[in-house]
């Protein structure tokens, strides 16, 4: 399995996409793109431990969500949201790639716009993949 987190050019492209996401969503506080087994590819904003712990948790959450979807016969998981009093967290698999994006938004960002923007970023990451 290709280790995206070890590919400097890919990591750099992901960083550009996270910065672009932050430009479109002024309420984005932090974000990370991680491999499906929990390694950090790229981060935005201040994250404890360089985002390593969030990376592992993102990987676990995505896998648990997919297990629940499979158990209930709900089809493929598209995204996960967590709502708190301070804002929303959105997680999404990067289409068929073994990558997951997670982004934290404050309450100035609507959940609809946050999900839409994360999906745009997912498309852009996949669009930039070598053919």
């Amino acid at each position: 399995m290709f280790a995206y987190h070890k590919d400097e050019e890919f990591c750099s492209n992901c960083e550009i996409e996270l910065n672009s996401l932050a430009e479109r969503c002024k309420g984005m506080q932090a974000a990370a793109i991680v491999s499906s087994d929990g390694f950090v590819v790229s981060t935005f904003g201040r994250l404890k431990d360089g985002g390593n712990r969030l990376g592992s948790m993102t990987s676990s959450m995505q896998a648990l969500a997919e297990a629940v979807h499979e158990e209930l016969g709900m089809g493929d998981n598209e995204y996960i949201t967590f709502k708190s009093s301070d804002g929303n967290l959105v997680m999404s698999r990067v289409h068929d790639l073994p990558l997951v994006i997670t982004a934290l938004f404050n309450d100035r960002e609507t959940v609809g716009h946050a999900i839409f923007s994360v999906k745009q970023t997912v498309d852009q990451i996949c669009g930039g993949m070598p053919k």
Binding site: M1, F2, A3, Y4, H5, S35, S59, E66, A67
Partner: peptide
């Protein structure tokens, strides 16, 4: 119930 991901530490 399993939560498997591709292993990048081969």
């Amino acid at each position: 119930v399993s939560t498997e991901a591709d292993n990048t530490e081969m």
